Simulated scan of single mutants.
Amino acid sequence: MKGHVTNSTKDVVVIKWMDNKGVVLASNFVGIGNQDEVRRWNEVSKKYVTIPRPELVRLYNNGMVGVDKTDHLVSLYRIFIRSKKWTLRMIFHALNLALVSTNSWLEYQEDCKICNIPSTDVLDLLHFRQRVAEALIKMGQPISSKKRGRPASGGSSPVNLPITPKQHRFRNEIRPASEIQ
């Protein structure tokens, strides 16, 4: 194959492979390696042709399946931030990745299948993100047990209850692991 260059110590190889467009890849893991044949559509002859594909391109394409899915899921409900500070943009991008990658929503879906939870009760991506946001906002805040509305009619004298320190009750999503039994 003519479209490759290696450095003097043969540590890094750079390959240019002509697919529909030119693809340039660099690797210190594998180079041309074992080539295989792939079918591509040729616009000129209007038919499929087989062309040799380097091992580096094959490995790259195999690894891109998960990346493409993650990019798609991140783009659905991206957190936009108007800031010139790259650090803030990176933090929110990392949060987006953490929410949709196999570390969270996809793992949540797999866990629901394992636990035989009906598909109607499984949260979609938008509602999952909302639940995570609510849990992060309420983290460390006690859930209030104040009653709302008008006081109940009944006795004319108020009941004197002993004053106790507020009990901190959390939703299961934000409850410390030591309290979950």
Rank of each mutant, 00 (worst) to 15 (best):
L88R: 15
I91R: 13
V44Y: 08
I91M: 14
V65D: 02
F80H: 07
V49L: 12
S75G: 05
R53M: 14
S45L: 12
I79F: 15
T87Y: 15
S83N: 10
Y77C: 10
R82N: 10
R40L: 14
N42D: 15
I32Y: 10
V30D: 08
K46L: 15
R40T: 06
R39N: 09
R58H: 01
N28G: 15
I51P: 14
N61R: 01
R53Y: 06
K46D: 09
S27F: 02
L88V: 13
R89V: 11
L88K: 15
S27Y: 08
D71V: 02
F80T: 08
L73R: 01
N42L: 03
P52C: 00
R39I: 06
R53S: 07
L59N: 07
N34S: 11
N61V: 05
R40V: 15
N42G: 00
D36C: 09
W41I: 06
L59V: 09
R58W: 09
W86F: 10
L59I: 11
S27M: 04
R78W: 06
T87L: 13
K85A: 12
T50E: 03
V67W: 06
I51A: 11
S75W: 09
K69E: 03
S75C: 01
G33R: 05
I51R: 07
G63D: 03
K69P: 06
K69H: 02
G66Q: 01
E43C: 09
S45G: 06
I79Q: 00
N42H: 01
V30W: 00
R82A: 07
K47H: 08
G31F: 11
R53E: 07
R58C: 04
V30N: 08
N28W: 10
F29E: 02
W41A: 00
V38T: 09
E43F: 13
H72M: 02
Q35G: 06
F80G: 05
F29V: 02
R39K: 09
F29M: 04
Q35Y: 00
D36F: 11
R40Q: 03
P54G: 05
G31Y: 04
T87E: 15
G66R: 00
R58K: 02
S83W: 10
L88G: 12
D68P: 01
L56F: 14
T70N: 05
R39E: 13
N34T: 12
D68H: 03
V57P: 05
M90Y: 14
L88Q: 11
N42V: 06
K85S: 15
L73G: 03
V44N: 04
